[in-house]
Design a binder for these strands. Sequence first.
DNA 1: CGGGCGAAGTTGGCTGACCAACTTGACCAC
DNA 2: GTGGTCAAGTTGGTCAGCCAACTTCGCCCG
Lengths: 265, 265
Amino acid sequence: MQQDEPGRPEEQATATEAGGALYRRVAADLREAISTGAYGEAGRLPAEGALAEQYGVSRGTVRQALAVLRADGLVTSRRGTRRVVLGNARVQSFSELLSFTHWARSMGEEPGGRLESLLRRPADAAECEQLRLEPGAEVYVTLRLRTLSGAPVMVERTIYPPHVGVLVAQLPADVVSHTEHLREHGILFTDADHTIDVVTANGDDARLLGCRRGAPLLRERRRTTDPTGRPVEWSQDRYLPGTVAFSVHNSLATSALSRHARADD
Amino acid sequence: MQQDEPGRPEEQATATEAGGALYRRVAADLREAISTGAYGEAGRLPAEGALAEQYGVSRGTVRQALAVLRADGLVTSRRGTRRVVLGNARVQSFSELLSFTHWARSMGEEPGGRLESLLRRPADAAECEQLRLEPGAEVYVTLRLRTLSGAPVMVERTIYPPHVGVLVAQLPADVVSHTEHLREHGILFTDADHTIDVVTANGDDARLLGCRRGAPLLRERRRTTDPTGRPVEWSQDRYLPGTVAFSVHNSLATSALSRHARADD
DNA sequence: CGGGCGAAGTTGGCTGACCAACTTGACCAC
DNA sequence: GTGGTCAAGTTGGTCAGCCAACTTCGCCCG
């Protein structure tokens, strides 16, 4: 039943940085197939065994690929029945979340930025805690206005530890993407914790974003670490309402999002 | 060694449904060990092989357990080096996100709720789309005020498809947790898509929450499905600022969060 | 015609094994 | 010292196989 594509063991994998790992290629292929509707809106996927044979890999590898899709909320999965297609793809991508520039470009908008201030000063207690520094260490503090196609949408306050800050400090003020430059200098961003809430605009926010003082802003705070677990930035972004929304998927299997009381720091 | 608890195959295990699966128990044990600081703040975990021997399981099972911790942002993981402890535990838990009641209780607060209205009416186009219903199907619409220790914090507007709505409709108005009651009636919540942004309070919001009209509220919209992929609710929660914050972890490996332009529905 | 039972199909979970890719640190040559 | 090389340690990825738990559906019996 159903046209198997007999002589297509595996191959090409096209765009998206062709993940070298087999299971990534399988996952990418399945994601593609799902998003083009090959299995229908709420259709059922082939059995793991069938997929394994189709791709010429072991069932374990197929399961690894399916775990990726499940984590992305593309398919369900429960014992006893075939997997069911849940939704049609999601934008996802770690870098889109991390880098304003990357995110903007992926939407076809032109990102802009203006460095308002950059200074070096001793870290306070909270900053030492977040960036895991010894008391008295110096941090670099930046304040930037971010724009989409010229219109201001976000104010970004970032605190860098010394080893990252020195690199940021010597960057020209008109560099659009700090993240990309830092990557080229060996600073990698791999893990991030985000907290999202609402705050009111202070004087700086109002002046830069062109809103009233006290106007509501959507705030995203994040602490980012490199592969070794060392903090590389602690940032606070304040968005004008209506410009962004944050979106998450979670399931009983893989939950990453949580709701907190606002008693934090 | 140390596989203690000989006569405790599985069971109750405190709140969080202690998964009977081996890898879940290993994950829970490691989570506990990490949060008590057994490996230090930024310390290194034992090698997979060592853990496997320690727990008397195969390395594959240990890897499965570690994948859970990695997804929760507790440890890093890269080829060549031991895993590094990232942060001290996180509240997580799917049900805390899903159920206001569950979340409140986990914080030691007393959740309350008052059903403001419940009506049945034909679904509009957007609702049919979200709940995957045929045009003209009837939906159940509820409006509830949610409180923490008596103080109003959130207004919840939920739209249920017929098969769930009929159950909700016959619930007493003073039932605190709809979710738990529905679970007892065989309605399971397993997957959810969330979108978080800022909106302004309308007349109903202002009256119920005791804020000004036009005051900013943190909005969470979610669509929840059961294990078969069938939508079971489409809800919109509006929180008073300062009462909650949403928190997410993501990494290059597992990304679930994304940032969108606010052009949606 | 309805309901219960059982078999087939399917995913969850676990094991043991193997190799590749990468990191780290020690050692050695310059 | 300085720098390069090498070996050991560790995680990533893949495979093949086995059993348990669960869902579905058809069949049979009352």
